[in-house]
Computed example of a mutant assay.
Amino acid sequence: MSTVTRWWLIRHAPVPNPGGLIYGRSDPSADTGDLATARALARILPDAAVWVATPLRRTRQTAEALRPGVAPLVEPGLAEQDFGVWEGLSHDSVAVWHPEGAKRFWSSPATEAPPRGESFAAVMERVAAALTRLTGGHPGADLVAVMHGGSIRAALALALDLTPDAALRLRIDPWSLTRIDFFPADGQAAGAWAVGGVNLLAGTFAPGGR
């Protein structure tokens, strides 16, 4: 029996956002109407898997579109970055109403936190803790986690030992699949991560991807 734990990380379906608002921890709905993309992704997901979502509805809506009737575990540690008082504002509004904070944040977006929010470095810490805990709780399992762009970047940072600045350079599109595996400890080793694919989109999935 394999003890390799396989993570299937999916970014939720797109969120209509004509105003370009910041919605990290806000809770807008996703548009899951792209049935062709949902079906293409669903076809390569493992039949027997533990499903995980975050407390934000867009991840649960996406999970339902991919596997109707699914009841995912809800894991707060995998939620999107909290942008604090900037939630629901446009970037232009932030520049007008919080000029000093915006200047400070954009000078170092990986480590600076918005007012009453969290930095991306903090996101990396909590996502790493959640992934480590869930991996330990489901050794040898497939875990399909519907997450956010920020939390998937954080997961890749754990797997690849990336700095916060380097992780922010990764592109993670809606409906994309990222694959990481955890190989357990052998003797005195602490175990190791391997990356099988990043930001894979419908049309690029390998046949028999399960």
Results as ranks from 00 to 15, higher is better:
Ala128Ser: 15
Glu64Thr: 06
Arg39Pro: 07
Gly197Gln: 07
Leu131Pro: 08
Ala102Asn: 14
Ala36Val: 13
Thr204Ile: 08
Pro99Gln: 13
Ala145Val: 12
Glu112Pro: 04
Ala63Pro: 00
Leu160Gln: 09
Ala157Tyr: 09
Phe183Gln: 14
Leu177Asn: 10
Gln81Arg: 15
Pro115Ile: 14
Leu134Asn: 10
Glu64Asp: 03
Pro72His: 04
Asn17Ser: 06
Leu73Tyr: 02
Gln81Tyr: 05
Glu125Phe: 06
Asn17Gln: 07
Ala206Pro: 11
Thr59Trp: 01
Gly191Val: 04
Pro99His: 11
Val96Leu: 14
Arg133Trp: 10
Leu168Trp: 09
Arg25Gln: 11
Leu170His: 12
Leu201Lys: 15
Trp7Arg: 04
Asn199His: 10
Ala192Arg: 15
Val144Asp: 01
Val127Trp: 05
Ser29Cys: 03
Leu21Lys: 01
Ala166Val: 13
Trp86Lys: 04
Pro184Ala: 09
Ser2Tyr: 07
Val146Arg: 02
Thr3Val: 13
Ala167Thr: 08
Leu66Met: 01
Ala145His: 12
Ser2Ala: 12
Val85His: 06
Trp193Gln: 07
Ala49Gly: 01
Asp92Pro: 07
Pro28Lys: 01
Asp82Tyr: 02
Gly196Cys: 06
Gly140Trp: 12
Thr37Gln: 10
Asp92Gln: 15
Pro72Tyr: 03
Met147Ala: 15
Val144Gln: 04
Asp142Arg: 05
Trp7Asn: 05
Ser90Cys: 08
Thr37Lys: 07
Val127Asn: 06
Pro68Ala: 00
Ala130Ile: 08
Phe205Gln: 07
Leu168Arg: 14
Ala53Phe: 00
Pro55Val: 02
Val15Pro: 06
Gly117Cys: 04
Ala155Ile: 09
Arg11Thr: 08
Arg43Pro: 02
Glu75Lys: 03
Phe183Asn: 13
Leu143Gly: 04
Leu201Glu: 09
Phe120His: 04
Phe205Lys: 04
Glu75Ala: 10
Met147Trp: 08
Glu64Lys: 00
Asn199Ser: 12
Gly208Tyr: 09
Leu66Pro: 00
Leu45Glu: 02
Tyr23Leu: 13
Thr135Ile: 10
Thr132Glu: 09
Pro46Leu: 08
Val195Ser: 02
Pro115His: 09
Glu80Trp: 04
Glu75Val: 15
Ser151Gly: 13
Asn199Phe: 11
Ala202Pro: 03
Arg169Asp: 14
Gly84Ile: 03
Pro109Ile: 05
Ile172Lys: 05
Arg153Glu: 07
Trp97Cys: 11
His12Gly: 01
Thr204Ser: 14
Ala42Thr: 02
Trp7Glu: 08
Val4Pro: 07
Gln81Pro: 05
Ala122Thr: 10
Arg171Thr: 15
Val4Thr: 15
Leu143Trp: 04
Gly101Gln: 14
Arg116Lys: 13
Leu168Gln: 15
Trp8His: 06
